Amino acid sequence: MTITETLLELEERMWQANREGDAAFWAQYLRDDAFGVSKYGTLDKAQAVSLAAANENPYLKTELSEQRVIQLDDDNAIVTYRVDVTALVQGNEMQLPAYASTVWNRSGGEWRAVFFQHTAL
């Protein structure tokens, strides 16, 4: 499997983990120093894992498009894409389209997310 295929699969799995409230995925695939930014502010790994476990606004559907992988070197890459999310917010289905980017780093043969940016449309 190519780096591009691997990282696009990991991005799909990340959104699947969001839909399923799978905090274990986040605990495994976020580097300890991982950091994220969205319209809600910033969060670190512990906060991201906690939010996934709480799954308070479950994602019902996530569709990725416009994916692009920018390989910086053999062990670092950026994945960017559009994600169309349908989420259950306070009992109501909401459409939450966004652009997202993840910086990935490979260490010891394993890819881990280092940084995540989520920009609501």
Rank of each mutant, 00 (worst) to 15 (best):
Q117F: 08
Q67W: 11
V89S: 12
S101Y: 03
T102W: 00
T62A: 11
L7R: 03
T86N: 10
T86D: 13
N105I: 07
N92M: 11
G108K: 07
A54Y: 06
T80I: 11
T62N: 04
E5K: 14
Q71F: 06
W15Y: 04
A24E: 13
R19E: 00
W15C: 00
A34H: 09
K61E: 13
G36Y: 02
E56L: 15
D84L: 05
N57I: 10
L72A: 12
V114P: 15
L96P: 11
N18T: 00
L30N: 03
Q28F: 01
D32E: 15
S38H: 06
I3F: 02
D84A: 12
R82I: 08
Y99G: 11
N55P: 02
T102E: 01
P97Q: 13
A87W: 05
T119W: 02
F25A: 00
T80R: 10
A24S: 12
F35M: 13
D84K: 03
V103W: 13
V37W: 07
Q90P: 11
E56P: 13
G41S: 07
R112M: 07
M1W: 08
W104G: 02
L88K: 14
G41K: 04
L8A: 01
H118Y: 14
D84F: 02
A46P: 07
A113F: 03
T6M: 07
R13F: 00
W15F: 03
R68Y: 08
T4E: 13
A17R: 00
R106W: 05
D22R: 00
T119D: 09
A77K: 10
E20A: 02
T86G: 09
T42W: 04
L43K: 06
S65R: 15
Q117K: 12
F115I: 15
E20W: 00
E63N: 04
E63T: 07
H118N: 09
G21L: 01
R82H: 09
R106Q: 15
K61L: 14
Q16E: 01
V79I: 05
W26R: 04
R31E: 08
I70E: 12
D73H: 10
S50H: 08
A53S: 10
Y59D: 05
V89F: 10
S65Q: 15
L121M: 09
K45T: 12
N92W: 09
A120E: 12
T42L: 06
W15P: 00
L7V: 03
L96W: 09
L72Q: 11
V37N: 06
N55S: 03
A48L: 03
S38K: 05
L121Q: 11
G91C: 07
Y99P: 06
V89I: 15
Q28R: 13
D74K: 15
N18G: 00
V89Q: 13
Q71A: 10
I3E: 06
T6I: 12
A53L: 05
A120I: 10
N55H: 07
W104D: 02
W111E: 04
